[in-house]
């Protein structure tokens, strides 16, 4: 069964934004102004939405080095390590929507500085949203492992295709997958969360 999750986000994590931008120390006045403007604009266009499903998982699911995740079988030592001791897994896909991409696209053409700040803010926002989803999963299922995404360690990025099928991502969230397994809208995340 595919569940939906959504929540409001009222501020951008500025510390994380500055980290993505490579800014060290205090931001100077003109940059502060740019951050402020960008935050106002980006918050007015986000629409955070996620879908998730919970699958049974057990170590015995492992055969010939292949993990049985129910929705797919996959070879990955790093994921296996991450899921050690888990009884279930939550699979999710989350996005902050196309509005952010559109805003970035606009400013790429007319203000590279703002576009770069918005890129960083978009990344910070999707992480914040995933954190909220994680917090929700903890409240539902108690202890969970850190979220694990395709491309982490040796987990092949082509698993994206199976995740999309399992969660009807295209239909439910309107996210589309490119041939190289990247997603549009770009500020989107797929991940597996181990449940103890």
């Amino acid at each position: 069964m595919i569940n939906e999750f959504s929540c409001g986000i009222s501020a951008v994590d500025l510390k994380q934004t500055l980290y993505y931008l490579g800014v060290k120390g205090e931001a100077e006045e003109s940059l502060k102004r740019l951050l402020c403007e960008s935050e106002r604009e980006i918050l007015s266009v986000i629409s955070p939405k996620a879908v998730y499903s919970v699958f049974d998982y057990c170590v015995e699911c492992e055969q010939n080095g292949e993990l049985n995740l129910q929705f797919a079988k996959v070879k990955s030592k790093s994921l296996c390590k991450n899921l050690k001791g888990c009884k279930k897994i939550a699979l999710f896909t989350a996005t902050v929507g196309t509005g952010v991409d559109r805003l970035i696209l606009k400013y790429q053409k007319i203000s590279p500085a703002k576009a770069t700040v918005l890129q960083a803010m978009g990344s910070a926002l999707i992480e914040q949203f995933c954190d909220s989803l994680n917090a929700f999963l903890i409240s539902e299922y108690n202890a969970v492992k850190p979220r694990f995404s395709c491309g982490y360690g040796d987990l092949d990025i082509s698993l994206q295709r199976d995740i999309f099928a399992a969660l009807s991502v295209e239909k439910r969230l309107g996210i589309t997958l490119l041939d190289n397994f990247f997603m549009t809208p770009t500020k989107s995340v797929t991940a597996i969360v181990g449940i103890l």
Binding site: L21, P112, T116
Partner: peptide
């Protein structure tokens, strides 16, 4: 020299 960062570099460029 890393005393100024990417956003400022771009703001000056603009």
């Amino acid at each position: 020299n890393k005393t100024l960062f990417l956003p400022q570099l771009l703001m000056s460029a603009e």
